[in-house]
């Protein structure tokens, strides 16, 4: 339904999005993650036809957003980050106007607006002026606007930003319900929310794609995992056995009286060293009290693929600079 190929967007000297590619299939509900300024909103604006791409392409349900923009836009319901609504219109008038603008036929417009309001839970403010509704309701009016023409694809840019926990919960519930009939791409930097709602996450940082896949799988294969082993031997022996296993970096160790030691190590991305650790300890005839690989939380994973990758890049650059010197 959404296909992005080598998409880049430059604003003057700033490269906001740097050759990202991903696909989102029918019925998927995808969380679009990244720190502030990562390029999420820019990518979304290219998808919705608000900005053209500098290079690369994006298509919505087979319609290129640059060459068949109108057809692509017909298939999208879009909720921008800051919902801009006309303060002098009543909520119901605003939604009727938006439904008409999106080509909802006059005979079914009233029903479409009523249904969108019911789904977003804003019936009680239908007669209020848009300028007088609270931020939470404003966000939901924006959501009702995205839903009113019943498009197959929903793109929601930070739908819960600035909302209180109850309002967030309500929006999450709505997004979950929408996934039954729509393809949903929603951006956020609130990780628990993404974990709760989405079947897959895409992480973008500094304009580049950092990760793409189901959250659990990404976390299970991530570089932020930690291995902990407690065995009946002294610390030096245990460290010696563990060190040298591919994909494992010993971080720290300590004696665990009366007769054991504990070693903790970082596990490299995609590495599965636990079996090898167990095999070596058994071969050495050492009793294993504990051997576990702890998965990071999504928050730790997010930190690792964003700021962690920054540090790795900085080290590489520093090493390259030293080499050149």
């Amino acid at each position: 339904m959404i296909c992005v190929r080598d998409l880049s967007k430059r604003f003057g000297p700033t490269l906001a999005v740097d050759r990202i590619s991903f696909e989102i299939g029918r019925g998927e509900i995808v969380g679009f993650l990244g720190p502030n300024g990562a390029g999420k909103t820019t990518t979304i604006r290219v998808l919705t036809g608000f900005h053209p791409a500098t290079s690369g392409s994006a298509s919505i349900d087979g319609h290129d957003v640059a060459t068949a923009s109108l057809a692509a836009r017909r298939r999208i319901g879009y909720l921008p980050e800051n919902v801009p609504i006309y303060p002098d219109l009543r909520v119901v008038e605003y939604l009727r106007y938006r439904a008409a603008l999106k080509g909802v036929p006059a005979r079914s417009r009233r029903a479409a607006v009523a249904q969108a309001m019911a789904r977003a839970g804003i019936e009680e403010v239908a007669r209020k002026l848009c300028g007088h509704v609270s931020r939470g309701y404003r966000q939901r009016v924006g959501l009702a606007d995205a839903l009113v023409a019943n498009p197959p694809i929903l793109i929601l840019d930070e739908p819960t930003s600035g909302l209180d926990p109850n309002q967030r919960r309500r929006i999450k519930q709505v997004v979950r319900e929408l996934a039954q009939e729509h393809t949903v791409l929603f951006s956020s930097h609130i990780l628990t929310e993404v974990e709760d709602v989405s079947s897959r996450i895409i992480v973008i940082h500094r304009g580049r794609l950092r990760a793409d896949g189901p959250a659990r799988e990404l976390v299970a294969r991530s570089a932020a995992r930690r291995l902990r082993v407690r065995a009946a031997c002294d610390l030096a022996r245990l460290t010696e056995l563990v060190r040298g296993i591919a994909g494992l970096t010993v971080d720290r160790g300590s004696a665990a009286p009366p007769d054991a030691a504990v070693v903790e190590a970082s596990v490299a991305a995609a590495a599965e060293p636990a079996a090898e650790v167990g095999r070596r300890l058994l071969a050495a005839g050492i009793a294993v009290h504990e051997l576990q690989v702890a998965l990071p939380t999504l928050e730790e994973y997010f930190h690792a693929v964003t700021e962690g990758s920054d540090r790795a890049e900085e080290h590489q650059l520093a090493a390259a600079a030293e080499g050149a010197a």
């Binding site: 604006r45 608000f50 017909r74 921008p80 800051n82 801009p84 006309y86 938006r98 999106k102």
Partner: peptide
């Protein structure tokens, strides 16, 4: 107000 974004992303020329 930023409403230009919703206006120009609507399926209208």
């Amino acid at each position: 107000t930023g409403s230009i974004e919703t206006l120009m992303t609507a399926p209208v020329r």
